[in-house]
Amino acid sequence: MKKRTWRNNVITVAAAIAVLLTVWAIAYAVVGNDLLLPSFAECMRAAGELLLSSVFWTAFFGTLLRVLIAFCISFVFATIFAVIAYMLPTFRAFFAPIVGAIRALPVLAVLLIILVWTSAGTAPTVVAFLSLFPMLYTGISAALMRVDTKLIEMSRVYKVPLRKQITTLYLPSALPAVCLECGAAFAFGLKAVVSAEVLARAANGLGTMANDMQIYSQIPALFALVIVVCITGILAESLGSIVGRWAERRMDNAD
């Protein structure tokens, strides 16, 4: 298969953005109502104002902090449980339906229950944890299962110390998939936190800010805020993808 170049990728992304903007322009012309669908230019103007306001940045970092806390807690627990499941097949079988149940939770409905138990500021973090934990657990488990069993057997025959096996065999083998998963999980966590903030009306949150904009009919600003959340998610996912690919290339020694 022909290898895609960096230049090709930029052209493809630019073409996709151009198509989206064209669809937006056509929809704007068809709808013809700024309150329902503002123009792209109006949204950009609102985005400029948003990025210059300290209120936005307080909300942005408030949301980011919630995502980060949920992500870190999920990552630590997912890693611990995935390692236990990798070592103990019985535990893996026992834990599978529990993870399945957590994954199946309607998190926004569960948020209403969580709100009874915790504060509006904490609830989005808990919701994000419930979304991210099964995702990261599954991803890390799959990455561990992909470590070459023949190399594990060889390491056992040569009595390679476990610490060396972890740093030299397991980590480099699992890292590419884990990095990709982390990027996707962070982006998903951002969506979960913002959605939960809308419902919980958490202080210093992009979700709450979006809710206020909707109430006060600041539609261009609302669109701008959604675009900022999208871009942040894409950046997180891209970062995970770049680090994952770098780790994969290092493992394969592909130039």
Partner: peptide, 8 residues
């Protein structure tokens, strides 16, 4: 098969 760690 050689069973070498490919990145080493």
């Amino acid at each position: 098969e050689p069973r070498l760690l490919p990145h080493l």
